[in-house]
Simulated assay, not measured.
Amino acid sequence: MSPTSIAIVGFGKIARDQHVPALHDNTAFSLDAVASRNASLEGVAHFRDIQTLLDERPDIQAVSLCAPPQVRYRQACAAIAAGKHVMLEKPPGATLSEVEDLRAQAERAGVTLFATWHSRYAAAVAQARDWLRERHVTAVDVQWKEDVRRWHPGQEWIWEAGGLGVFDPGINALSIITAILPEAFFLTQGELEVPANRQGPIAATLAFSDRRGAAIRAEFDWRQTGPQTWDIHVETDAGPLALTQGGSCLRIGDEIVLEGDDVEYPGLYARFAELIARGESDVDVAPLRHVADAFLLGKRVEVEAFHE
């Protein structure tokens, strides 16, 4: 079969660092266009915006939307109306309602919609999920702490309403635990630390409980310099499990079971190709729902102003 002709819309750091290499190594796709106001890719057709792309390149079959979530809904609407398959970077939208409407639009149009959670495709996540499936979880501790200046230099949109603040990385942890924990869980309380000059939180502490009463605690912080921390520790009736390094390393008890490579975005595009071939969609909003709950239930505490 011929590869699916795909375009990237929104060509920032994540598109360059992750999407382009993953597409380059995937024979199911041909990267044939980029739509971006401020950036282009050598050797690939460039368009200023998605509508111009759709008007001038009707042969494009799929789009990967990497623009900020605040503008992604309108872009996805245009692509679906044009009959294109759509892949959404995380978070899939600025609100739950937007994503649910996109799901309905894609179903009516008969196209694939894929709301991606790249951290779920980290090397050790599937094996952790399988091991926990037969265990009783008693406690979970999530530590997701990184340096915003390192990962989001000059990106003001992440601090604006709809940009999620520290939940931009924190939602990655939530995407993992919603995938690996055998019981549903619910927020019971939270605290959001919001800089005096920003709309989005720079840190958050969340407490959840699952149906069986297991305590789940998550700490997200964007102020950590030096080594970065992306760790999940789970206590069970069969001993502890640790999923560290963003989900690429798995330890069960005292044994390192798996240390894997960075396979997240290749995994996403393999899944997207599979969904297109099957004529299916994959739109799981559970991680975004937990973030929405945090903004609903979390206590806001003002902290010192943040400057780049």
Rank of each mutant, 00 (worst) to 15 (best):
A218R: 13
R120V: 13
V86S: 08
A305L: 03
Q105R: 15
W159L: 14
H24S: 03
D210C: 14
H46W: 05
V291E: 13
L192S: 03
A124H: 07
H19Y: 06
R198K: 10
P153L: 08
A81Q: 13
L243R: 09
G165H: 09
A273M: 12
V148K: 03
V166G: 10
A179Y: 07
A286Q: 13
V257E: 13
N197A: 02
E274V: 05
E193V: 02
I216C: 15
H24F: 08
A28D: 06
Q189M: 14
N38P: 04
V166N: 01
A215D: 12
A115K: 01
V148W: 04
G43V: 01
D130N: 11
A15C: 07
V34D: 11
D147T: 00
L41Q: 08
G298M: 05
G239C: 01
T112M: 05
V148M: 13
E156N: 10
G247D: 13
F11Q: 02
E156Q: 06
G298F: 03
G253R: 07
A15R: 13
I60C: 12
E156A: 05
P58S: 00
F47G: 00
T95G: 07
W157T: 08
L164F: 07
E160G: 05
R300S: 01
R278C: 03
Q70T: 07
W117C: 15
N38W: 00
H152M: 10
F208N: 08
Q245C: 09
D25M: 13
D32Q: 08
R211W: 02
H85C: 13
E304V: 05
K13C: 03
V263M: 15
S30I: 00
F47H: 13
V140M: 02
T95V: 05
R16E: 11
T205S: 07
W117I: 04
D210F: 15
P21R: 09
Q75T: 02
V303C: 03
T244D: 12
E156I: 14
G253I: 06
G165L: 05
A128W: 08
S281Q: 01
N38Q: 09
G279I: 00
V86F: 14
A33L: 10
E235F: 11
L41M: 11
F220H: 10
V137N: 00
P69A: 12
D101Y: 14
V99C: 14
D101S: 15
A218Q: 06
V301G: 03
C249G: 13
C77N: 01
S40K: 04
T95C: 12
C66A: 01
E302Q: 06
Q105N: 14
A173E: 10
V71G: 12
E259R: 05
G170S: 14
